[in-house]
């Protein structure tokens, strides 16, 4: 394992351990994401990858360990005791392996909901609809439209989300995550269920996000060609422990990784 400590991590965890009853799902995970990088987390099914995401986003509270998130250089926050909406507000957004859109809301509303986490006006403003609130809401709507247009979803803004084709739903889920204006985007198996052409589009999309939005990406993925193509750094998780980390080329040849994926002979 290469132990190069990134100089400016957007996220670093140390000793993250998650125990469910008698089952240790994560054990002593020390992990970091360099600011501006695309980092991949790979590993066989059941290795604890999604559990790790759930810890980062406040859905689970790890049994032990610390998680530090630094949305911009010089600022850092411990994540362990925060509620999910607070973590989103600080700047971590995520997508799910099985797409979780608000199916009965329109495409635009899905994005608007996410935008609203950044609004200043409160409940009273929403009811009284004073000028400032309306201006802010209009600005949010415009921002959402532009975001949808930029990611090719402009024409379907008023469609109900569940009627979109699968690939577009995946794209919308990513756009919704971007609408919270994250500094760290977590993608949980974005290629799951996509065909070859759609996976290629996703590859372009991730690179486009990296080039155009100033954020870092942490990616869980099974599709190795995608991982090798987009990531700067790869971590490998097996049975809840990190077994390797390094640049993609190194990981591809690592005997421990090959063993974890293919079994011992």
């Amino acid at each position: 394992m290469t132990d190069a400590v990134p100089r400016d991590p957007v996220l670093s965890t140390s000793g993250i351990t998650m125990i469910f009853g008698g089952l240790t799902a994560l054990s002593d995970v020390n992990f970091s994401v360099e600011r501006g990088s695309i980092t991949a987390l790979i590993g066989p099914n059941g290795a604890g990858k999604t559990t790790f995401f759930n810890c980062l986003t406040g859905i689970y509270r790890p049994s032990r360990g610390t998680m530090v998130f630094s949305p911009e250089p010089g600022k850092s926050f411990g994540l362990k005791k925060l509620a999910p909406d607070r973590i989103t507000w600080l700047g971590i957004a995520r997508t799910f392996q099985n797409i979780r859109l608000f199916n009965n809301l329109t495409v635009l509303e899905n994005v608007l909901i996410a935008c609203h986490s950044r609004m200043k006006a409160g409940i009273l403003g929403a009811l009284l609809r004073d000028r400032r609130t309306r201006d802010e809401e209009n600005a949010m709507a415009e921002f959402s439209y532009r975001l949808l247009a930029r990611y090719g979803l402009g024409p379907s803004a008023n469609h109900v989300a569940k009627n979109l084709p699968y690939g577009a739903q995946r794209r919308l889920e990513i756009v919704r995550a971007l609408a919270t204006r994250p500094s760290l985007l977590l993608l949980d198996e974005p290629a799951a269920g996509l065909n070859i052409a759609e996976t290629r589009e996703l590859d372009d999309l991730i690179k486009y996000i990296r080039a155009n939005e100033s954020l870092s990406i942490l990616l869980i993925e099974h599709d190795m060609s995608l991982v090798m193509s987009v990531s700067d750094m790869v971590y490998v998780l097996d049975y809840g422990s990190l077994i390797a980390s390094g640049p993609p080329d190194e990981i591809r040849r690592d005997p421990k990784v090959i063993k974890a994926y293919l079994g011992e002979d």
Binding site: T57, G58, D85, T88, A93, R100, F102, N103, I113, T180
Partner: peptide, 17 residues
Amino acid sequence: MAMRAVSQDPTMARLTG
């Protein structure tokens, strides 16, 4: 809108802030 979102998927609603 937030109420509709929460009634569909409370966890996801929290994750969108």
